[in-house]
Design a protein around this nucleic acid. Structure first.
Lengths: 262, 262
DNA sequence: CGGCACGTTGAAGTGACTCAATTCGCGTGG
DNA sequence: CCACGCGAATTGAGTCACTTCAACGTGCCG
C-alpha cells in the first residue's frame, strides 16, 4: 500500500530559509533578496555520520535538506542521550553562531543531505535585516520549547506515554513540513536509539511499541511510523502542539486534527 | 556560622542588562546608551505566586532582580514538572517576545523582585542595535543548553547523581552571579519541588540528600545549599560547566574550581 | 496549645533494568 | 536455491531501584 518512495517535494535552500522567515515573521521584499544572497555548500551524509561534535567550534550552521539528524550528549560511560531530532527545514545548530563551544554533537540518523551556511553570512544577514534575525531567533526558541517538552516527557510520563508523545511530535512536525505520506512518515530510529532518547531501555521501548500497536493507535516498523488512530493517540498523552508554535495559518494546520484540549 | 542575610549586592536594572550584553558580546557606547533608555517597572512577588501562566500572551518580559523563579509545565493530572530555575540577572521569558503563546508557567519560589520590560521596548532596542539583540539571543541559547542538560540529567543519571548535578549547576550559576556566601547559596526548594524538577519522588529526594550528606559533598537544609567538597561533587557527576557558556574572562570563573575533565 | 508544612523512616509492592536466549528479516556468498 | 551471518526485534526470568503508603518527628506560627 505505502509506496517505497518518500513523498518529498524537493525544496531549495533559499526556499526553506524563506519559509522559516515566514513562519516567525513577515518577510519584506528586502528581506527576501537578502536571504537569496546567502552562499552555501551542500553535503551528503551517510547514516550514523557525525557532522559536528561536542567541544568543537564550528564556523558554519547546518540546514537540513533531507533525511533526519539527531543531537546527542555523550555520557562518561560512552552512552548517548539523544536530545532532539531534525527534519527538512530545521537548523539544528544556529546556536553555534552565538555560543562558541558546542555542548553536544550532531549526527545523521539515515542518509541525509544538508546545506552548510557560513556563520559570517548569517551574522551579516541578521545585522542588516534584524527582522530576519528575529525569525531565526524564534526558530531557536521553538527548539527550546521542544527541549522543555522532552524534559517533561522523560521525567513525568510512563514509558508508553513517552513513546506516544514522541510519535505525536515527530508526526506532527513531519506533517507540517509536508513530509508525510498519508498517515505515515519516516522515523529512521531503531529501538535502542529511541531508548537513548526517552531514557528507557530498548526492551522497554519494544514493549511500549507493542502496547501502542495492540491498542491500535500507532505502529513503528522498519523506519516507518504509521499513525493508526490520531485522535486516540493524542488524547492518550494529552498532546497539545501549541509548544511547536505553528500558529501560521497554513492550510495544513487547519485540517481534521483534533488536537486542542476538549 | 552562616549569617541570615543573603550576600546580595544590590544591582540596578540597566547594570544587569549591560552585564548580560557584555556576557555574550562586546557592547559599544551606543549600545550602552540604548540599553539605559529602556523603561520598566518593578514588582515584588510572594513565595509561590505565579507571574505568567501557560496559554497567556504576555506583553512584557521578566528580569529577575532578587529571589528565585521557576518555570514549570502543568500536567493533566495537575502535577507540576519544573523545567528550570532562575536567579538575579536571568530573563526567564524573553521567548515570549517572539513566540506569542506561553507553553509553560513562571512562578516565584520565594519572595522575589522582578523588573517588567515591555516587549515593544526590547524589540525596538534589538532592531536599532542588532548587536545587543545578539547578546540576548545568546542568553536564550544558554537557556536551551541548560534544558538539554536537564534532559540528560533526568533521563540518563541515577537519582543521587541527578540531585548532585543540579546542585553543581545551581551553585555554579549562583557563584557566577555573585550570589554565594562562601560555599553556600540560597536554594529555596523543598524536597517535593526538587522531585518535581528531577522526575523522582520526594522520598527519593530525601534519600539522595542524605546520601550526599553522608558522603560529605553537599548539604541542603532549610533553603540553603552548602557545598562541602566541590571537587568530589563535580567529579562524581562529571560536571562540565562548558554548557553554561561563561567563557568571559571574569575573575570569578578563574578561581580554584577544578571543573574541566582531567 | 494546636495546626500545619516539611522532613524522615519503614515496609510492601511493582515497574523497569539486566542478562540471556530465541526469532525474524535481509543481504551475501556458496 | 540454500546456508550463513548479522543486526534488529522479541520474549522470559531474576534482580534491584524506585514508588507508594502510612506513620511519626520536628519546627514554626497562629
Amino acid at each position: 500500500m505505502a509506496k517505497e518512495a518518500e513523498a518529498r517535494p524537493p525544496r531549495s535552500v533559499p526556499e526553506l530559509l524563506l519559509a522559516t522567515a515566514a513562519q516567525h515573521g513577515t518577510p519584506l521584499a528586502a528581506d527576501e533578496s537578502a536571504i537569496r544572497k546567502i552562499r552555501y555548500r551542500t553535503r551528503v551524509l551517510t547514516a550514523g555520520e557525525d557532522i559536528v561534535s561536542q567541544g568543537e567550534r564550528p564556523d558554519v550552521a547546518v540546514l537540513v535538506l533531507s533525511g533526519m539528524l539527531g543531537r546527542y550528549h555523550t555520557l562518561p560511560t560512552g552512552n548517548r542521550q539523544y536530545l532532539s531530532f531534525h527534519i527538512t527545514g530545521d537548523m539544528p545548530d544556529i546556536q553555534s553562531l552565538f555560543l562558541s563551544i558546542l555542548d553536544h554533537s550532531l549526527c545523521a540518523l539515515n542518509q541525509a543531505e544538508i546545506a552548510l551556511l557560513p556563520h559570517g553570512q548569517l551574522r551579516d544577514l541578521f545585522l542588516a535585516r534584524p527582522g530576519v534575525g528575529f525569525a531565526f531567533w524564534g526558530l531557536t526558541l521553538v527548539d527550546a520549547a521542544i527541549f522543555r517538552q522532552a524534559i517533561t516527557n522523560n521525567s513525568a510520563r510512563n514509558h508508553v506515554d513517552r513513546l506516544a508523545h514522541l510519535f505525536c511530535e515527530l508526526f506532527f512536525r513531519a506533517r507540517e513540513a509536508r513530509l508525510v505520506d498519508g498517515w505515515s512518515c519516516s522515523v529512521p530510529l531503531n529501538q535502542s536509539q529511541l531508548g537513548q532518547a526517552l531514557g528507557m531501555s530498548h526492551i522497554s521501548v519494544n514493549r511500549a511499541i507493542q502496547r501502542l500497536r495492540k491498542d491500535g493507535v500507532a505502529e513503528l516498523r522498519s523506519g516507518k511510523l504509521e499513525i493508526l488512530n490520531w485522535p486516540a493517540l493524542t488524547r492518550r498523552v494529552d498532546f497539545d502542539p501549541t509548544y511547536l508554535h505553528i500558529d501560521k495559518k497554513s492550510e495544513i494546520s487547519r485540517t481534521p486534527f483534533r488536537n486542542r484540549r476538549s
